[in-house]
């Protein structure tokens, strides 16, 4: 992969630079619509991180002038487009579908942000990791089901043996823990990136925040 430069922000949060460069955003913005292309992805999470993103409230209007959301559960595009400047990934990598997606997203993204505890630590989705997948499914769909007891096998993604944090599968450039990360922290990170600075979220969020 790209050369892995480690940067330590003044407060000590490390940012692993996997070859992305901040000025790229400005160049790309100038070349295209004048806006930075942002994607948000929802893997194995509860959508709470996305809700927190929307909780930026009226400030989101200011952001909307600078960014273009090219892919997200919030917009109606089914295929990850590629050539994306910043992607926020919510959720752990839990199924074969998640795994396939995350590689595609990494390939099509300049700066990948692990967005929220599920992406950063696998969090609640990983609570099943202590058990066998079959036992978990049996528990949920047979033992605890009143009607129609059966494990869904067709048309749904297959669970991996364990739910994993995103950075155990692909390189991640920036980590934003929190369950969910406070909207102020999200706004701060996006704002700093748009200003061409490396955000330092220390003190603005934490695990479980």
């Amino acid at each position: 992969m790209n050369d892995n430069i480690k940067k330590t922000t003044p407060n000590g949060w490390t940012i692993e630079n996997n070859g992305w460069a901040l000025q790229d955003f400005e160049e790309q913005a100038a070349a295209s619509s004048g806006k930075v292309k942002v994607a948000t992805v929802w893997l194995d999470g509860c959508s709470g991180c996305h809700m927190s993103f929307l909780d930026i409230d009226e400030k989101i209007i200011g952001l909307a002038d600078l960014i273009e959301i090219v892919y997200s559960p919030l917009v109606d595009i089914k295929q990850f487009p590629g050539g994306v400047d910043v992607t926020l990934v919510e959720g752990a990598v839990s199924s074969d579908e998640d795994e396939e997606k995350i590689h595609e997203i990494r390939n099509g993204t300049n700066l990948l942000i692990s967005f929220g505890d599920c992406a950063v630590t696998a969090n609640v989705p990983a609570m099943r990791n202590q058990f066998k997948v079959d036992d978990v499914l049996t528990r949920a769909y047979v033992e605890n089901a009143t009607f129609n007891q059966q494990i869904p096998r067709f048309g749904v993604p297959r669970l991996l043996k364990k739910a994993r944090p995103v950075h155990e599968i692909v390189n991640v450039d920036l980590f934003l823990p929190g369950c969910p990360p406070p909207s102020d922290a999200i706004y701060y990170v996006l704002g700093e990136l748009l200003e061409g600075r490396i955000p330092d979220p220390k003190g603005k969020t934490r695990f479980g925040a």
């Binding site: 949060w13 490390t14 969090n123 990983a126 220390k202």
Partner: peptide, 26 residues
């Protein structure tokens, strides 16, 4: 297995506080 978001000590935990103090983001 530390799942801070569902832990009785969330926000009151010394281990969690250390992760902030030592700048551990992951």
């Amino acid at each position: 297995n530390h799942v801070c978001s569902v832990c009785v000590s969330n926000g009151q935990c010394e281990l969690q506080a250390l992760s902030v103090e030592l700048g551990m983001s992951h």
